[in-house]
C-alpha cells in the first residue's frame, strides 16, 4: 500500500534470460521439495533446457504461443456464449384439446416423438410421472388415433441398460435377457403399461427436447383410449418437468378448453411466459411420503357468497403421515372432496339452487337439474378458497350436461370410503 502511494519505484532492467538448466534426474527433481509440494517450472526451461536457441528466438516462440492461446481462449468464450444462447431456457409449447371426441375424459396434447418426429396425441397428466408411448411390436395395445410408434424408425431412440442409473430411478425396474431396462406403471383405475425403458427426443411444435426418459410400452391395458401415450407432468424424478425443468426454468402451465368438440385448442406452455401475470397464487405443499403429486392448501368453499360452514381446513389437511391433503390433477375429471366436505358443499348448493327443477341422479352425481327449455338460469356461485388465492368458478365448471335432454349435474363428488 505504501509503495502504491509513491509516485515512482525503482526498476532494474535485465535483458532476455537464457533458459535455466533443467534438472535431468528424477532424484534431482525431488530433492528440493517436501512430499507436500511440487516443483513449478517455466515451460521454456523445460523444453529448451540446454538448447542452443537464442533468447530472442525463444521470446518470439513464447509470444507466438501466447497469441495462439489467447485466440483459443477467446474462441472458447465465444463458443460458450453461443451455447448459452441455444441452451438458454427457451419457452416452448404445444396444443391442448379435450379427449372427449376420442372417447376420453382426459385432455390431450400433440407432440412429436423421435427423429424424425411423429406427431401423436398424449394424455396431459399432472397426477403421474413416467412419460410413455405405445410401441410396436404390440403384445397388447389399445386403440389410438395415430399410428403406433415404431422405435426402429427413430434415429434418436435409445434403450436404457439395466445397469444405468436412469433404470434405477424407476420404482420397480425390470431387466430382460438383452440386459435392457423394463418399466411398468400401474394407475389407480387398474390400467397399466409395461415395456422397455428408453430415452427419446420429444418435439414441442418446433422445439426439440432431447434425451427424455420414455417408456416404450408393448403391453398397455385398461381404460386408455385415443391417445398414443401419456406425458407425465407430475413432480417426481422421472416426470417431464423434472427431467427437462432446467430447459424451461421449471415453469409450465396449461389451459383446459371447454370439452365441446368445437372448442378451439388451447396450449400447454413451458418457460417464463407460462405464468400469466393475472394469476393468483397458492403455495405448493409437499408430501414427504410421495413426490408425484402437486399438493395445495384448500381452506374452504363458498356457495352463493357465503362460506359453507361444514367445509373446514381440517378436512383437507395433509398430515405428517402423508395422508389426506388436496392435489391438483389434470388427469382426473371430477373434483373429489372428502365426504363430509362434499356433503356440506352439496347441501349448500341445493339450498342456493332450490328454484331449479331437480332431475334424477346420474352416475356418481347425486345433485342434478332439469334445465330443458331454459336459455338462462341463475345458479349460486362457487368459490374455492386456497391459501392466498380465491378461485371463483364459472358455472359451466360445476353444472355440466350429462345427456342431450337438458339434464345438468353438480359436478363434484365425495371420496369413497374404503
Amino acid at each position: 500500500a505504501s509503495a502504491a502511494a509513491l509516485p515512482f519505484q525503482t526498476f532494474s532492467p535485465t535483458s532476455l534470460p537464457r533458459p535455466l538448466a533443467f534438472p535431468e534426474s528424477e532424484e534431482a527433481l525431488q530433492e528440493d521439495y517436501s512430499p507436500a509440494s511440487l516443483g513449478l517450472f517455466h515451460v521454456d526451461d523445460v523444453y529448451y533446457s540446454g538448447a542452443d536457441a537464442s533468447p530472442e528466438l525463444l521470446f518470439q516462440f513464447r509470444l507466438r504461443r501466447d497469441a495462439i492461446r489467447v485466440r483459443d481462449l477467446s474462441a472458447a468464450v465465444v463458443e460458450a456464449a453461443a451455447r448459452n444462447v441455444s441452451g438458454r431456457a427457451r419457452d416452448f409449447s404445444s396444443s391442448v384439446t379435450s379427449g372427449l371426441s376420442q372417447g376420453s375424459g382426459e385432455y390431450f396434447t400433440r407432440i412429436g416423438i423421435g427423429t424424425p418426429p411423429r406427431y401423436v396425441y398424449m394424455v396431459l397428466d399432472t397426477g403421474s410421472d413416467v412419460v410413455w408411448i405405445q410401441c410396436s411390436p404390440c403384445t397388447k395395445c389399445y386403440s389410438q388415433t395415430d399410428p403406433v410408434f415404431d422405435p426402429r424408425a427413430s434415429t434418436s431412440f435409445l434403450g436404457v441398460s439395466c445397469a444405468s442409473p436412469l433404470c434405477r430411478r424407476l420404482d420397480s425396474p425390470g431387466c430382460n435377457n438383452r440386459q435392457k431396462c423394463l418399466y411398468q406403471v400401474s394407475y389407480g383405475d387398474g390400467s397399466f403399461t409395461v415395456g422397455e425403458f428408453s430415452t427419446e427426443t420429444l418435439t414441442f411444435r418446433r422445439t426439440r427436447v432431447d434425451n427424455i426418459a420414455l417408456g416404450c410400452g408393448h403391453d398397455n391395458e385398461g381404460l386408455f383410449v385415443g391417445a398414443a401415450g401419456l406425458l407425465g407432468l407430475g413432480r417426481g424424478k422421472l416426470s417431464f418437468p423434472t427431467q427437462a425443468g432446467p430447459r424451461f426454468g421449471r415453469k409450465f402451465s396449461y389451459c383446459l378448453v371447454d370439452r365441446s368438440a368445437t372448442a378451439m385448442p388451447s396450449s400447454v406452455m413451458f418457460g417464463d411466459s407460462a405464468v400469466s401475470r393475472n394469476s393468483v397464487f397458492t403455495p405448493l405443499l409437499t408430501n414427504p411420503k410421495l413426490d408425484t403429486f402437486y399438493y395445495i392448501g384448500l381452506t374452504g368453499i363458498s356457495v352463493g357468497g357465503s362460506r359453507v360452514p361444514g367445509v373446514t381446513p381440517s378436512l383437507f389437511k395433509l398430515d405428517s403421515s402423508g395422508a389426506g391433503g388436496v392435489i391438483i390433477d389434470s388427469g382426473t375429471s371430477v373434483t373429489r372432496l372428502t365426504r363430509p366436505a362434499y356433503v356440506a358443499l352439496r347441501d349448500a348448493f341445493r339450498i342456493g339452487a332450490y328454484h331449479l327443477n331437480r332431475a334424477p341422479d346420474f352416475s356418481l352425481f347425486d345433485t342434478c337439474y332439469d334445465l330443458s327449455g331454459k336459455t338462462e338460469v341463475k345458479v349460486p356461485t362457487v368459490v374455492l378458497h386456497f391459501e392466498g388465492a380465491d378461485v371463483s368458478l364459472p358455472a359451466s365448471n360445476y353444472l355440466i350436461p350429462v345427456d342431450t335432454s337438458g339434464r345438468f349435474c353438480f359436478a363434484f363428488a365425495g371420496t369413497m370410503s374404503g
Binding site: 385432455y107 378451439m264 394469476s279
Partner: peptide, 30 residues
C-alpha cells in the same frame, strides 16, 4: 385425499411455478 379435477380447472390457465413452489390460477386463460 381430495382431488381438484380437470372439469373445475377448465378455462383457467393453471401454472406450476416449481422454481417458486407455487401454483397459479388465471381466469379466462385459454
Amino acid at each position: 385425499l381430495s382431488i381438484i379435477g380437470n372439469i373445475q380447472q377448465q378455462g383457467f390457465r393453471v401454472s406450476f411455478d416449481l422454481a417458486s413452489n407455487r401454483v397459479g390460477f388465471a381466469p379466462r386463460g385459454c
